[in-house]
Design a binder for these strands. Sequence first.
DNA 1: GATGAATGAGAGTTCATTCAT
DNA 2: GATGAATGAACTCTCATTCAT
Lengths: 183, 183, 183, 183
Amino acid sequence: MSEPPLRADARRNRARILAAAVEVFDEHGTSASTEEVARRAGVAVGTVFRHFPTKADLLAAIMKELQGRLAARAETLAAEGDPAALFTFFAEVVERAAGARTVVHLLAADGTDVGVDRQIAGLGEALDALLARAREAGAVRAEVRLDEVIALLTAACHGALAAGWTPDLRHRAVTRLLDALRP
Amino acid sequence: MSEPPLRADARRNRARILAAAVEVFDEHGTSASTEEVARRAGVAVGTVFRHFPTKADLLAAIMKELQGRLAARAETLAAEGDPAALFTFFAEVVERAAGARTVVHLLAADGTDVGVDRQIAGLGEALDALLARAREAGAVRAEVRLDEVIALLTAACHGALAAGWTPDLRHRAVTRLLDALRP
Amino acid sequence: MSEPPLRADARRNRARILAAAVEVFDEHGTSASTEEVARRAGVAVGTVFRHFPTKADLLAAIMKELQGRLAARAETLAAEGDPAALFTFFAEVVERAAGARTVVHLLAADGTDVGVDRQIAGLGEALDALLARAREAGAVRAEVRLDEVIALLTAACHGALAAGWTPDLRHRAVTRLLDALRP
Amino acid sequence: MSEPPLRADARRNRARILAAAVEVFDEHGTSASTEEVARRAGVAVGTVFRHFPTKADLLAAIMKELQGRLAARAETLAAEGDPAALFTFFAEVVERAAGARTVVHLLAADGTDVGVDRQIAGLGEALDALLARAREAGAVRAEVRLDEVIALLTAACHGALAAGWTPDLRHRAVTRLLDALRP
DNA sequence: GATGAATGAGAGTTCATTCAT
DNA sequence: GATGAATGAACTCTCATTCAT
């Protein structure tokens, strides 16, 4: 189960590949070629496939990392105790999605599913904490449920990526969405 | 400038191809093969390419048709004079998107852009009429602008397509979204 | 079940691909690349895959054709009524195998099996007729059974392909083998 | 000219690699990957390549070892003086081949030649002794020559590997073959 | 000497697009 | 106009071999 620690150069390459993949997939979507990822990372294709035996594995790894980062951010916010933290988090995620397809794919792997379903669960827990806090403080309506929050977040991220969403429009749309959650 | 009228069989083929393409792309996404479209339409690939020199052209044609249908529906609703028609339309479109990727692609061609940008304008006009009517009747907040409505609609459609949106969740999410527009 | 008749050029290409494949696989074994087959046939790879969606399909087609030819030859010999026809056929097949790996693969698909099993059955029937005739005439021992004949034939073909089997040696080895079948 | 004696661990590794390679190639054929061999041997690929600079070298080494073992067995049998020892040896080798591709590759490296030709010579000497003994005792026909024996043995081993050779069929086929050598 | 990560040519396969029939 | 066979670039993935650690 536990794998031996990677050699220093291997770990470095793994990281570079992951970083390159995030960039490439953010720019061209997940249909971008593995070869392009390798090129951007400055390694040979074989190296990419050594680290991620399948393109799906690469995608999954990216999503996992992203999910980890988002969940961590959510936890940090939750720890700070601000009842409106849910709104902050929501807005931040959408903002991020605006420039990166990856966030969108994490929230809704439409078709090219890569086992993201389980990862969203991890994020869900973090979100749930934020939601609970907000509910207690009366910052959101009592009947708002977790799946709705995720749904709206997903929707907003997808939308944010759509052509024509200027920063201003994005801001107004998110505001509307968050208003929908308020009492 | 003006092209000669198509022969009867050509016109018939064009329609069949379009219909088949809608089906195929709804089911498998826009990455489905042209050959599959041809097969479903009962014609040979060559015929598809004669009518639509490029896959992108085919996509654009589909979008145009869809836009036409949606705009027509919006106009019909507007003509009926119900102040809440905007909400009806909104819900209907999301419902449709839930089972068909095409609507989503129309509202936000993320990447595989096929000149949809201009088409959305046509739909915008129809939506604008609905919005104006709703505003006059006080059914929506005064400050809600057209681009926000489109943004939310886009977002909702994308979300509706996401894995895990059950009909129930879809209903609740749309309700929330529409609440966000109400005074 | 029945496919439409191929267009003239398609039929021509199919034949050329098959012929090229026989040559290539005879020379370099079944691990030779599909690209090489295409090159030899004077077509593009895509064409090979259009006719034979999988490399295994190509192999199977070759085997089927070969089996057909061998069975036909066996039937011809059987029709002529010579009690020693079994021996003639045996020697001919081995002779052929000496210069072509394909025969060997047909008789014993060792590993890279491509559904040849069923094809050998067809050949088996033809061989059985020859064997029956020989037995009646007392040309082979009474207890010799079909599977043994196939076994020895397979063995001889494999051997004939082995490095170092000169024509002379081949002749003597086959003679010994056939002696083993005689009373 | 003479190489320095290997370090103890190096000698041990060499042996383990060889043993692993025999297993792996017996199971999956010579197209099995070098990495698989290394894994089975419990060493890293680099180590395999240090000992055998090329895959072909590894194959050749295996064959040499096998040839040594078979020759030793033949000599033992020859020393015992049984006139029928040739038959015993023949049957034993075929039996072994039935479960292991390696024997077959030794006797007839069809294509992936790895310099086995010369190795068979060594085995030939041992076989020649058995043949001579059998001839003296009148156990085989006077005109049977060494190359024929090798040819039949090769053939039988190849055949034994072929799909569909049950132990029973194998026994009958070998019996037939040996009968062919008897007066 | 051993390790195992990196390399990169090459394999099988797919698909938008072209063009002879 | 319609057909469907041919094209060939592109894609994912494998593996013998090299070389930094």
